[in-house]
């Protein structure tokens, strides 16, 4: 099928490129748009490495076609940093707690965690597990990820006071 022009907002900037309807949002971001933060892990919606926010909600970018995201606001891991380009409190907490190893699932974890903290500034362990339950990490055994998200929540609450 013919490529069609698709315009969406990625990390705050309007971006346009052409793609066939069969191109997933993940491949569209990573290919024509060159936004490579979201990662391809399984392409069947299980691993969560491709998680991005669409209109503020985490979704699997491998299970959505780019054409469906036309006109929508998409946030990838690159968009989590502050306007000064410095890592966000969540990203800093992942560094402090070493909530990662190889870095491959990390963008999806951060997206899932960001969505959680946006809704719930004081998540308990069960909330965190639920929020990242759809993201498989093969390196960490999740402990330091959970610690990182707890730390981020604490730091954000302190900063808000």
């Amino acid at each position: 099928m013919k490529p069609r022009s698709i315009t969406l907002t990625v990390n705050g900037a309007k971006r346009t490129a052409a793609a066939e309807p069969r191109v997933t949002l993940l491949d569209f971001l990573r290919g024509p748009l060159g936004v490579t933060g979201a990662h391809m892990g399984c392409e069947h919606g299980v691993c969560g490495a491709c998680s991005v926010l669409v209109e503020g909600e985490p979704v699997r970018a491998c299970l959505m076609f780019a054409v469906q995201a036309a006109g929508k606001a998409v946030t990838t891991v690159e968009g989590l940093a502050g306007s000064d380009g410095e890592p966000s409190p969540l990203q800093e907490a992942f560094r402090d707690a070493h909530g990662l190893q190889c870095g491959y699932c990390t963008p999806g974890m951060l997206i899932a965690a960001q969505a959680l903290l946006d809704e719930n500034p004081d998540p308990d362990e069960a909330d965190i597990r639920e929020a990242i339950g759809g993201n498989i990490c093969r390196c960490t055994g999740y402990v330091q990820i959970i610690e990182a998200i707890k730390l981020a929540a604490e730091n954000l609450r302190e900063a808000a006071q």
Binding site: P21, H44, G45, M64, F65, Q68
Partner: peptide
Amino acid sequence: ILAGGQSLVPMMNMRLARPSVLIDIN
């Protein structure tokens, strides 16, 4: 019909489903 796509799109990615037309109701 393409609704949420959470079951259909994995099958399409694996080419186990291959509709020639998708009608998106989102």
